[in-house]
Design a protein around this nucleic acid. Structure first.
Length: 258
DNA sequence: AAAGTTATCAACCGCTGCCTC
DNA sequence: AGAGGCAGCGGTTGATAACTT
């Protein structure tokens, strides 16, 4: 990516240059050398020693996202990886760093970008505009997004670590009552190939044993929607349609599901 | 071929939690 | 105990590539 001409230079209080923007190969090399000597830590010392005019934060990010060994840079997410992300997002919420640990060679940034890209695509398919970036919408973003159901309590078979309050909002395995959660388990979300709805067979088989996820923790299980929870009628209708071979046709007829 | 739209990626920002003093 | 620094995380932005009209 060539953004050389757009490089920004800013100054801190001491008028000491802090370089921002794209990294040069020489800077990468300095960073790699630092990690070879000291390991992936002491990021702020890189600048204090005058090795680079980058913040420690920036150095860490560069290492984690681009320079770390064994990264799958430039390699698209496989169907398997997509399913893993979808499954884990349903379980953990937007814990990208945590999800990334289940995918070798993928960073939290990769997972985050993949998911946000997917959300936009889905929003378009559903004839809802992508979430506005306007600050005034940020706190309510989840509520204009795609569709909502009242979710039942999910049962997870694993004992999980205590969850901080801030984490609980979208982590379905910790929902304790009928909380509003983002996203219904659209078939497309569970089976990424269905986004290619020209060719999708729409043979939805959601039996737990066919869930393809394989992660580092073999005991991991995913919450399942209980079949008989009381969804609002509108949502029930929506979900009923998911099994309809013509389901996606409705999107072409300006049906607003919000 | 040009213009418009969408997808992808890299990097920054702000916040939070942990650790040290 | 609490202040300050640092690392890490998630959200967001902006540039470019790829695709469509």
């Amino acid at each position: 990516m060539l953004m050389e001409g757009k490089r920004r230079i800013v100054y801190d209080e001491e008028m000491e240059e802090i370089k921002k923007g794209p990294w040069k190969a020489e800077e990468d090399q300095v960073l790699i050398n630092h990690v070879r000597k000291h390991g992936p830590r002491d990021w702020s010392s890189i600048r204090s020693k005058g090795l680079l005019q980058r913040t420690g934060k920036s150095c860490r990010l560069r290492w984690v996202n681009k320079l770390r060994p064994h990264l799958k840079s430039g390699v698209k997410f496989s169907a398997e990886e997509e399913r893993t992300v979808i499954d884990l997002q349903a379980q953990f919420g937007n814990k990208w760093a945590k999800i990334a640990t289940y995918l070798s060679g993928r960073t939290d940034n990769d997972v985050k970008n993949f998911w946000s890209s997917r959300q936009k695509r889905l929003a378009r398919i559903l004839h809802t505009s992508a979430p506005s970036s306007s600050k005034s919408h940020q706190n309510t973003k989840d509520h204009d997004d795609i569709s909502f159901v009242k979710a039942p309590k999910f049962i997870s078979s694993t004992e999980e670590e205590p969850v901080r309050k801030s984490e609980s909002c979208s982590s379905s395995s910790h929902i304790t009552d009928f909380e509003t959660i983002k996203m219904v388990p659209l078939p497309e979300l569970v089976y990424p190939s269905m986004l290619d709805y020209e060719n999708a067979p729409f043979q939805i088989d959601s039996t737990p044993e066919k869930q393809p996820f394989v992660g580092p923790h073999s005991h991991l299980s995913f919450p399942q929607l209980q079949p008989d929870f009381p969804l609002p009628l509108e949502s029930q209708d929506f979900i009923t349609r998911l099994g309809d071979p013509n389901f996606l046709d409705v999107f072409g007829n300006s049906v607003d599901l919000r």
